[in-house]
Nucleic acid binder design. Structure first.
Lengths: 152, 152
DNA sequence: TATTGTTATACTCTATAACTATA
DNA sequence: TATAGTTATAGAGTATAACAATA
């Protein structure tokens, strides 16, 4: 909690590790996620459940399998995540008419309402995390990350 | 393992979530870490232990507390990580002469040798992960991430 | 009093395998 | 034979609080 005397712009920044993109992503994400989770806690959400809710509230009608794949999670983890949201009345599992093995996860009106609030909370947190970047730099970062995240 | 038929450039990429930098970092990192871990397994390392080894083998002589902070880990987690490397003779805990509460973690010659091999393995994995980016784009990404990761 | 490293512990997250119902 | 969802479970990762030694 208390940051000790971290103000001393980290000595270790001059190491080779600190130039590895992998490491930088891990650290940037740890910072960002903890900020986002702090804010989301007020809505009883976490980064994970927020992501599921966001996709459920989009018009894409994802299956659980698609959620797992898109969110880089194991399919078995989606079950608990969806259970949690469903028990709060935020999403429902609708049978997929074209494949009866499959559920489609969609947001309820309550879910959509909570999602709207969560979006603004998350984007505020993102704004804080990315405070040192200009708008064009953020777009640049977004574009580069997207190519890495969805590379074939 | 088998990627089912993911070849279908994800439907969900058009959702709002997919434009959030936080989400993109999480996904990019998940991809990269799993690739890196695959390669590091042959050296009996993981991303975490590799990072500790890298810092131990730099000339910065980090304390355990500094490792924890720099790697966004809890101090108590560093103990096990260092224990593991120390028991393999890759690093040693040296008492800090200026503060006897403190240990300084340094790589042994064996540790340095393994680290050299690990670096090349990791950078090959990174190269694969970032395959779609040019050299200048990688530098751009590195610079942007560093600012987010070390923002004051 | 405060801090470093440590331990113990509980909690969460993640991965695996097995099952069911569909295809 | 293969896939979607589910369950159970074990293993890894993470957070909390407490203690000893030192500052």
């Amino acid at each position: 909690m208390a940051e000790t005397h971290t103000s001393s712009r980290h000595r270790l920044q001059s190491t080779d590790l600190a130039t590895e993109i992998e490491f930088l992503m891990a650290r940037a994400r740890a910072l960002g996620t903890s900020k986002a989770n702090e804010q989301l806690a007020a809505l009883n959400l976490k980064a994970r459940s927020y992501a599921v809710l966001a996709l459920a509230c989009s018009d894409s009608r994802p299956s659980q399998r698609e959620l797992a794949e898109f969110l880089s999670l194991d399919a078995s983890q989606i079950v608990a995540l969806v259970d949690g949201l469903e028990s709060r009345g935020l999403v429902v599992r609708e049978p997929d008419t074209s494949d009866r093995r499959s559920n489609v996860i969609v947001g309820t009106p309550e879910g959509v309402a909570l999602y709207e609030r969560a979006v603004s909370v998350v984007s505020a947190a993102e704004g804080k995390s990315l405070g040192s970047l200009s708008e064009t730099e953020r777009d640049q970062l977004r574009e580069l990350l997207a190519r890495v995240a969805f590379e074939g």
